[in-house]
Design a protein around this nucleic acid. Sequence first.
DNA 1: TTGAAAGCGCTAACAA
DNA 2: TTGTTAGCGCTTTCAA
Lengths: 347, 347
Amino acid sequence: MPLPMSSSAPPLRKGRRGTGAVTLRQVAELAGVAPITASRVINTPEQVSPEVRERVLQAVRQTGYVPNLLAGGLASAKSRMVAAVVPNLAVSVFLDTVQTLNDALFARGYQLMLGQTGYATEREDALLEAIIGRRPDGIVVTGVVHAPEARQRLLASGIPVVETWDLSDNPIDMAVGFSHAAIGQQVCDYLRLRGRQRLGLITANDERALRRAGSFVAQAQAAGLPPVAVVNVADSRTLHSGRTGMARLLSEQPGLEAVFCSSDLLAMGAVTEAQCLGRRVPDDVAVVGFGDFAFVADTVPSITSVHINGSRIGQLAADYLMARAEGRPTGERVVDVGFSITERDSA
Amino acid sequence: MPLPMSSSAPPLRKGRRGTGAVTLRQVAELAGVAPITASRVINTPEQVSPEVRERVLQAVRQTGYVPNLLAGGLASAKSRMVAAVVPNLAVSVFLDTVQTLNDALFARGYQLMLGQTGYATEREDALLEAIIGRRPDGIVVTGVVHAPEARQRLLASGIPVVETWDLSDNPIDMAVGFSHAAIGQQVCDYLRLRGRQRLGLITANDERALRRAGSFVAQAQAAGLPPVAVVNVADSRTLHSGRTGMARLLSEQPGLEAVFCSSDLLAMGAVTEAQCLGRRVPDDVAVVGFGDFAFVADTVPSITSVHINGSRIGQLAADYLMARAEGRPTGERVVDVGFSITERDSA
DNA sequence: TTGAAAGCGCTAACAA
DNA sequence: TTGTTAGCGCTTTCAA
């Protein structure tokens, strides 16, 4: 029987009426407990007695309740989201990192937010604002953040940042990557020690590829080799660029003996073009790639490539962010995961 | 001069103390307006007089205020996030879709949340709960959702869902994709009309690839061709699977005249292996791939492949979700983006 | 055009 | 172990 004085239509003046989704309060009411108790059943079940816990879980099942993590995040100042900022998803060299990051985070109840900068600094600021506004518990960026405004924004946000795929003397929080300069140098030595003198380079225009290229050229010079023939290509993701790059190198430098490419796709294109032009790989011209994608082991000839453990980078980034989120001590601020040159038939 | 009765240390009993980030209230105070007015400057600036607007914007700049979209999302029941669920990011066939989706959403102030199912239904439920809990304004899934529990969860959530890369008679909300059965059929006809009789198939084990395979086999049978030789491979993302698949097909069926592969990487591996075994492609054996990745145009021989406009799928998904979010009328519930066979040298 | 009040759904802090 | 209270930072509703 309704209370005599209860008005039939609720006044419902100011404020809102919600979305209609089941709320924690409804679950709590159904279970006959306070909302905070229901909250504990979900977040810290060990703090609740078994009987009460079971009653609440029953109510959760009955109603199909799915906690509103937006509300939880607002209240606890923990969104349980992490943002990953990559230049471009299609550059599969980052995919391993993103995938491992995603898996490691998901296992701990975190969700990944994606951001693509498209290699354009201009878009970066809008992207950072969009990301920071969602208050992620961590941000993983590809490369070191150099732009002062971006650094400032990230620093000011107070959100833990992991810079990846490169090293930094002065990371915002943590950097996990490897030395691009060392790669250029070692690939040059690798070729030189195998008797190659006339070297060439097919490189994309992104910052890190250019760093590898620069140290490759410098090392060749230091070793007294002839000047390195260099071709810049716009797109590191197509065989086509590799083919046109190799064609240009060979026309400019018919005596070319080895080429270092800034990606495996470029390398494969380079190999293809060399063969089409009647050169034998590696007998006439050797080719080294970068990334060590799965497919380079199965081409003919198989392609020698610089191997990066992208998955490890993702794992270390996740470990750092989880440690920060849980207030645990974090390890080194800069981690060098190194690289290796996987020798195959092409060089 | 401070008010005489003002206590020097705020009591700060129950409740919380925030994260220290600049809030809308602080901006409003600095600008000398009510919080709601500052909110309007950010969200609906045309509702605010120019003078007040400028004062608030000045305060925003001064403080470096970044709106808390979690709070805004909670209050407005619009998170401005969309979730994308893919089997695996490394399957680059979906990358175009995800990338276009991301770009289209970002341009409208939405952020993409990523979810990987890893082709495992078991993980799907946890993933859906994690996603729905974050109350995205839309969910884009790869493939049609068949599992009844998953369908039920999505339906119950009330969140708009776009199923992609496949068609459905009964989509949850909208489906945008193409007919895998039609592909198998047409590729079979394509080969048959070019005089190929002894057909083979190298296929991954995922649902949609198997659907293409099934209709390919059925069509061959209907046309009175000899039984199709079929090889299942675990991984569609490696040349290696393509090579071993082709090796098996050729040993079982030395007279093989054409092979349809469930991905371009498989196709490339198949071509490579065929050549290693002394077969000419396409003279002895033709190869057709799926996906029409950028690289297949530049291999030798270039590879004939089934082309899907993945980017268009992403764009249509974004269009639908934005229309729903803004309460605009939506178009067709099922959109067939079709496919085409790009003829190249390998078939 | 501007503002006061009232929450959105949840959890931290404190109390019993 | 359970509950009360007071917000988290924002926007909707209603009123001026």
